[in-house]
C-alpha cells in the first residue's frame, strides 16, 4: 500500500511540474512589452517605405496572428496551447525555417542530447561513487586522500571552462579528437557508430569530469559516516569479510542519499550539457536552442525549453521510481 502511495505521489508531482513549466513558458514571453507581430509589421513597413495601405496591414496582422496561434483572448490562446502541447506535441512551425514544424527539429536533436547526457551521467555517477566509496572506506590510507584531492580539484570547475580546456588540449595542442562534431548522414552502420563515439568522446568526457568531483566528495563523506554505524561495527565483530562490509553494508546504505542527489542534480547537469553542446557544436537540444535564440525563432525556442523541462522531469521521475527498489523501508512501509 505504501509503495502505491509513493508511486502515485511521485507521478502526481511529475505531472504538476510539467504543467507549471509549460504554463510559465506560455506566459513569460507574453509579459514582454513588445509584440512580435507588430514588430514584424513595422519592419515590413520600413522595408516597403511606409507605402502599405491600412487594409493590407490589417490583413497581414490577422493572417499572422492565426499563423502564430495568437488569435482570441489570452485564455483561449492558453487553452489552445495546452491542448497542442500535451495532446499532439505540436509547437507550431519554425519561424526561421517555415513551414517545417518545430517538433521535427526537436526529435532530430533529442536523441543526441539524451545519448550524450545519459551516458555521461551514468558513467560519472557510477565511477564517482565507487571512487568515493573506496576513499571513504579506506579513509586512513594515503590513496584515499589522493582520491579525495582529485575530487576537490575537479568539483568547482564549471562545465564551460572544462570544455574549453579539453578542446584546447585534445583538439588543438594535441589534436586526437575533432574540434567540432561532424557526423555523416545516412543509415546506422558500424562506421557511423564509431564516428559518433569518436565525435562524442570529448563532450562526454567534459560532462563526466565535471560531475565526477561532487559524486566523489559526497560518497566519501557518506561512506565515512556510514562506517561508524552500529551495523557496520557489528558486522566487523561478526567477522564479516571486509569486502562484504564495504558493498553490502557501507555502499548499500550510502548510495541511497546519492540517488536522491542524482535526481536533484539532473537539472544542473542538463544546463551543463546544453553549454557543452554549444561549445562542441554537438547537434543536440543545446545547439538547437542557441540557433533558435540567434535567429529569433520563438516557436523553436519554446519547443526546446519545454522539451528540456520534460527531459529533466522525466529523468528525475525515473530515478525516484528506482529508489524503492534499493530501499526496503519504502517498499515495505
Amino acid at each position: 500500500m505504501g509503495l502505491i502511495q509513493y508511486i502515485v505521489s511521485r507521478v502526481g508531482a511529475y505531472l504538476i511540474v510539467l504543467f507549471v513549466g509549460v504554463t510559465i513558458t506560455f506566459f513569460l514571453p507574453r509579459l514582454m512589452p513588445s509584440d512580435p507581430i507588430e514588430g514584424y509589421i513595422a519592419q515590413m513597413q520600413n522595408q516597403a517605405g511606409q507605402s502599405m495601405n491600412p487594409e493590407t496591414i490589417e490583413e497581414l496582422r490577422t493572417s499572422m496572428r492565426k499563423l502564430y496561434g495568437l488569435e482570441g483572448s489570452i485564455v483561449d490562446q492558453y487553452v489552445d496551447y495546452i491542448k497542442r502541447v500535451f495532446i499532439s506535441f505540436d509547437f507550431g512551425p519554425s519561424l526561421a525555417s517555415y513551414p517545417k514544424p518545430v517538433s521535427e527539429f526537436i526529435f532530430t536533436a533529442l536523441p543526441w542530447t539524451l545519448g550524450l547526457l545519459g551516458t555521461a551521467l551514468v558513467v560519472s555517477w557510477l565511477i564517482g561513487n565507487i571512487i568515493g566509496l573506496v576513499a571513504g572506506f579506506y579513509h586512513n590510507s594515503r590513496w584515499a586522500t589522493l582520491l579525495e584531492i582529485f575530487g576537490v580539484i575537479l568539483y568547482p570547475i564549471p562545465y564551460y571552462i572544462l570544455a574549453l580546456v579539453l578542446i584546447l588540449l585534445f583538439a588543438y595542442i594535441w589534436p586526437i579528437f575533432p574540434l567540432s562534431t561532424t557526423i555523416l548522414p545516412g543509415p546506422i552502420t558500424w562506421e557511423k557508430i564509431n564516428s559518433i563515439i569518436y565525435n562524442s568522446f570529448l563532450p562526454a568526457l567534459t560532462l563526466v569530469l565535471a560531475g565526477f568531483g561532487w559524486n566523489i566528495l559526497g560518497m566519501k563523506a557518506l561512506s565515512f559516516a556510514n562506517k561508524e554505524e552500529g551495523y557496520v561495527t557489528f558486522a566487523r565483530l561478526k567477522g564479516t569479510p571486509s569486502r562484504t562490509i564495504m558493498f553490502s553494508y557501507v555502499f548499500r546504505n550510502s548510495i541511497l542519499p546519492q540517488i536522491t542527489a542524482l535526481a536533484l542534480s539532473i537539472g544542473g547537469v542538463f544546463n551543463g550539457a546544453l553549454l557543452t553542446e554549444i561549445l562542441f557544436s554537438y547537434p543536440g537540444l543545446g545547439l538547437l536552442m542557441r540557433t533558435a535564440i540567434g535567429s529569433g525563432d520563438f516557436n523553436l525556442l519554446y519547443g526546446t525549453i519545454i522539451m528540456s523541462i520534460v527531459s529533466v522531469a522525466t529523468a528525475a521521475l525515473i530515478i525516484d521510481l528506482v529508489y524503492p527498489l534499493l530501499d526496503p523501508r519504502i517498499r515495505f512501509r
Binding site: Y231, T233, F234, A235, P241, S248, R252, L326, D327, P328
Partner: peptide, 16 residues
C-alpha cells in the same frame, strides 16, 4: 541499530 536496514536478516545471518 546493529542490523543493516537495507538487507534481509537472513542474509545477515550467513554473511559472516
Amino acid at each position: 541499530s546493529s542490523l543493516n536496514p537495507v538487507i534481509r536478516i537472513r542474509r545477515q545471518f550467513v554473511d559472516f
